[in-house]
Design a protein around this nucleic acid. Structure first.
Length: 273
DNA sequence: CACTCTACCTGTGCGC
DNA sequence: TGCGCACAGGTAGAGT
């Protein structure tokens, strides 16, 4: 399940690992599933993209934002934005490997490679917009780079259960179900606790845990969870470990539901009080 | 505003 | 073996 660290890993691969995406022109666009294009005018999508060149890539939360330019007169720019949601994958392949069972979109490039978007569940979305704000303006600050001051200010403006708040992309962008559980475990905070009941010390630990967990996961190239997401090296402490022993205190990790989401807790390290 | 539920979608893994 | 079903998860939108 791609969350912020996994999306960052995709970004770094496309941007830094040869053959890289920036500088490549799109020769042809193949839409295999209309529903992944977040625009009622799916027909326009290929027409507008063909001939455009990948310029740069940035990430905000779980969204990848590709700046595209059309060389020549006017030098117009636009933005391709991709959200992988649950099961989306994005990678460069040779032309001849450009379509498989769950391939939804293929961007044929000018160097015999293709940028391929696969997504078994068709949850992922692709936008083509003139202004990235059209898609990402509702997001809060990026969870990896938010400053402690902003973190403290924002958290005190809500009165909500802390886990659903961490998952709310308008509060902080990038945290999903796996890292929310990991962050709350590291901070020693119960997921059902209300944000307004957190002490200044709780908030400091939460802020630090958010930065530390996400930074470590990014450096590890994402999570490594049996059968779920196995490319990275980040090892989870509580997610999916119900019935196993807590690595800090040895108690049994339990699974509860918080805001309809499976939630993993060490009842000793994360007291509800 | 806080929260809950549903829809979207399909592969997996369980119980019968 | 095979069937049916609950479940997983991110987000939007509707409802309480």
């Amino acid at each position: 399940m791609p969350e912020l660290p996994e999306v960052e890993s995709v970004l770094r691969t496309l941007r830094d690992c040869p053959p890289v995406l920036p500088g490549r022109m799109i020769n042809r666009v193949i839409v295999l599933s209309d529903t992944v294009i977040s625009d009622e005018h799916v027909d326009k999508f290929p027409v507008e993209l063909e001939g455009m060149v990948f310029s740069s890539i940035v990430r905000h939360g779980k969204y990848l934002i590709f700046r595209m330019i059309r060389s020549g007169v006017g030098c117009s720019e636009s933005f391709v934005i991709i959200h992988l949601r649950m099961t989306g994958r994005l990678f460069l392949v040779p032309h001849e490997h450009s379509v498989e069972r769950h391939t939804r979109l293929v961007l044929m490039l000018d160097n015999d490679l293709a940028l391929r978007f696969d997504d078994p569940r068709k949850f992922g979305r692709v936008w083509l917009v003139a202004n990235p704000a059209d898609v990402v303006s509702g997001l809060g600050p990026d969870a990896l780079t938010v400053s402690p001051e902003i973190f403290r200010t924002r958290i005190s403006s809500y009165q909500r259960q802390i886990k659903p708040l961490l998952l709310d992309q308008s509060f902080l962008a990038g945290i999903g179900n796996i890292y929310a559980d990991e962050i709350l475990f590291q901070a020693g905070i119960h997921p059902l606790k209300s944000s307004c009941d957190l002490t200044p010390s709780d908030i400091d630990r939460l802020c630090n845990a958010t930065r530390e967990i996400l930074t470590e996961a990014v450096e590890s190239n994402g999570a490594n969870i049996e059968g779920v997401f196995s490319k990275g090296r980040f090892v989870v402490s509580v997610y999916g470990r119900e019935g196993l022993c807590c690595s800090k205190c040895g108690s049994m990790i339990i699974k509860i539901r918080v805001g309809q989401r499976g939630t993993h807790v060490c009842p000793v390290c994360q007291p509800f009080l």
